[in-house]
Design a protein around this nucleic acid. Structure first.
Length: 690
DNA sequence: GATCCTCGAGTTCG
DNA sequence: CTCGAGGATC
């Protein structure tokens, strides 16, 4: 229908046909044309008028209205931006709260939800299930629009769900939102439509390009600009930003009775309200899952951000029977597509001090959703990496999660770079102690052995689960111990009193007592753990175990010369040299003396231990993924006690890969190399036989 | 000297 | 989890 109308409009807009004889009729016709053009663009996605034509008609209308004030109307398209800038926002209570929706990332969760819905509706095995309606979850800002007798009277943001801000003036400036509902009479007395305000990628890119040209800071993503725009007090700004709207719910309704959500969407659509063209109803779980998966592939072509699909029970009567928990409705769930990549803006770079004095650049970014978590930080590794990727503060960057866990900055959007972006300079001094920075290749080091940041990291490492395992000595406590100078040296931990600890923030007498006893218990971890805990370069858990197998106690290790150290497996010139130097340096001997004085055990439990000739003797195994029966380390210990060697990466020399849930690249590699793979059940049955 | 392998180090979020 | 570097192996 759109294209034939376009012809009509054009005919009506010949300059020669200016009808000064009947301004009232012309005004009315212009108003209809403009609103119809909005509708064609935003509701039918079938534009009938160019932007230029739209603006020219708007100008003509505006002129006529000024000349003939008797025809003024609050619903005129000219009034969309005519509103005065508002002073501030008035908080308004939602008559029906705008609840949030439960999220899930897993088809199994959707299946479980379906089962809960069936149960909630008291459906038996044989009964037909409810019809579901699925529509895209657009990444925007939720809003509630109130129409009374077809006129937009109020727009309120979601806010905290109970109360939001009145943004009526802003909403009126959004052309996608009809000021008057169309369709047949009778108009519903009250109709609250809820939906999402959002911005298309094109508009977003254009705005950022403009900001880059003006050296203004860039926006992280379209949702942030949308939210920012709605908070703009000037409706003119809102109008210029070209926001879109798509309805996805209802609030108070009076005189409007579709019985289903899909029917509701269709009904408001016919009244001129934009709804998603991708909403579909499905009758059962398999076709629902098929739809969810199929849409995942399509969504990137939509031209705006969609982070999932909302699935809901279609019939309102059933929705009411299912009700809601305190947090979210039971009849509705969002299936989220885990984002593998996201774009955001790099706001700052700080330099972190590691336990060995390494300075590592750490990016702070505007928050971005990635694989189900909100990411704010990423490591930039070193200054070389920063130069290679040409990363600057203020840049738009592409972030992704390596192996679903650790965020990384993949690249910089150089096309969106602002002149104001700041190159990242390596620090001349340690951010913690101010000591001069020393460079070795691409790496920077703080050489001050007394540096408080280093001490903090070393204590935290020492207390860690895989080292001395001091329960209750977390980051917060360590910070205070260093700050109050209660601990200036690792050995100081062993003379802390309950009184001293109870004085710390977040630590009353009871937890202080248990912390003291946790520290006490840690004296007995033995030589292997102790060596790995004190932070000697190159000496981690494996090297420490090698040493603890070769020497019965610390004293015999201290007696060993470089040559004997170098003859140990996996000890070369460098590792042996560093170890020897560290142990015999003044700091090294002082540390060991003080730990010995503190009563820390220096003897080895592993000395002379040969590979026990267990059932798994000679097998090299690697564990990956999440295990349900005990931690990976725990299971590894049990395998080792049966004679297996536990490796950390998969190679040709690996005999068996034990893969738990959510195994990643290691499982893939094992497949490639044709290595035997056990699942957790297989592992347990192998272990269970002893 | 080249290549493969393993360990250590740094790392994010809830 | 990934990268880089040290060690082992050919």
């Amino acid at each position: 229908m759109g294209s034939s109308r376009a012809g009509e409009y054009h005919a009506g807009w010949m300059p020669s046909t200016k009808r000064s004889d009947d301004p009232g009729a012309r005004i009315e016709s212009l108003r209809q044309m403009l609103e119809e053009a909005n509708r064609a663009y935003y509701v039918d996605a079938d534009p009938v008028m160019s932007d230029r034509d739209y603006d020219q008609r708007l100008e003509e209308l505006s002129g006529l209205e000024a000349a003939h004030p008797e025809f003024a109307s609050a619903d005129s398209p000219t009034r969309r931006v005519g509103g005065q800038p508002v002073d501030g926002f008035v908080s308004v209570e939602h008559s029906i709260p705008m609840q949030s929706i439960d999220n899930s990332y897993d088809p199994d969760d959707i299946a479980a939800w379906c089962a809960r819905v069936r149960k909630g509706l008291e459906l038996g095995e044989g009964d037909a299930g409810p019809v579901f309606c699925c529509d895209p979850k657009i990444d925007g800002v939720a809003i509630s629009l109130r129409y009374e007798s077809g006129r937009l009277v109020q727009a309120v943001t979601r806010g905290d769900g109970r109360r939001g801000d009145d943004v009526t003036a802003q909403a009126r400036a959004i052309r996608a939102i009809p000021l008057r509902l169309g369709g047949e009479d009778p108009m519903p007395a009250v109709l609250e439509i809820r939906g999402e305000i959002f911005m298309t990628n094109d508009v977003f890119d254009a705005i950022n390009a403009q900001r880059a040209a003006r050296d203004e800071p860039l926006f992280a993503n379209a949702r942030n600009v949308t939210a920012g725009t709605l908070k703009s007090l000037d409706p003119g700004v809102v109008a210029s930003r070209r926001l879109c709207f798509s309805a996805h719910g209802r609030g108070v309704v009076d005189g409007f009775e579709p019985g289903t959500y899909s029917g509701f969407l269709e009904a408001i659509r016919s009244r001129g309200v934009p709804v998603s063209p991708h909403a579909r109803t499905v009758e059962d779980l398999p076709s629902m899952l098929e739809l969810l998966v199929a849409f995942q592939a399509d969504r990137s072509g939509l031209g705006y951000g969609v982070d999932g699909m909302v699935v809901r029970v279609d019939a309102f009567a059933m929705q009411e029977r299912l009700g809601a928990t305190s947090k979210a409705p039971r009849w509705c769930v969002a299936f989220k597509y885990p984002a593998d990549q996201g774009e955001t803006v790099l706001e700052d770079v700080t330099w972190q001090v590691g336990k060995g004095g390494t300075l590592t650049p750490r990016a702070t970014m505007q928050p971005v959703e990635l694989a189900g978590t909100t990411v704010r930080h990423a490591t930039l590794h070193n200054i070389e990496e920063i130069r290679r990727k040409d990363i600057r503060v203020g840049d738009r960057v592409v972030v992704e999660k390596a192996g679903e866990i650790i965020p990384q900055v993949v690249e910089v959007r150089l096309d969106a770079r602002s002149e104001a972006s700041q190159p990242i300079e390596p620090p001349a001094a340690c951010p913690s102690c101010g000591e001069a920075v020393h460079q070795e290749g691409p790496k920077l080091y703080c050489m001050n052995p007394e540096c408080p940041a280093q001490l903090r990291e070393r204590i935290a490492w020492f207390a860690g689960r895989n080292q001395m395992d001091i329960d209750g000595l977390g980051e917060k406590i360590v910070d205070q111990l260093v700050e109050r100078k209660l601990v200036r040296h690792l050995a100081d931990l062993y003379v802390l009193s309950v009184e001293q600890l109870a004085d710390l923030e977040g630590l009353a007498e009871k937890s202080a007592t248990s912390l003291v006893s946790a520290i006490d218990v840690s004296r007995d971890r033995g030589m292997a753990r102790l060596l790995a805990s004190i932070g000697i370069r190159q000496i981690g858990s494996a090297a420490a175990r090698t040493l603890a197998k070769a020497y019965p106690d610390m004293d015999s290790l201290l007696d060993a010369d470089r040559e004997s150290l170098q003859s140990l497996p996996d000890f070369g010139e460098i590792t042996a040299g560093i170890l020897y130097e560290t142990l015999h340096s003044s700091r090294g001997t002082e540390l060991l003396d003080r730990l010995r004085e503190a009563g820390v055990r220096f003897t080895s439990d592993l000395h002379g231990q040969e590979a026990p000739g267990g059932r798994m003797a000679g097998l090299t195994m690697v564990l990956t993924g999440t295990m349900e029966h005990g931690s990976r380390t725990e299971l590894a210990r049990r395998l080792e006690s049966l004679g297996a060697t536990i490796g950390s990466s998969v190679s040709r020399r690996t005999d068996v890969l034990v893969a738990g849930a959510k195994a990643g690249s290691k499982l893939e590699k094992a497949h490639e190399l044709g290595i035997e793979i056990w699942d957790e059940a297989r592992l347990l049955s192998e272990l269970g036989e002893d």
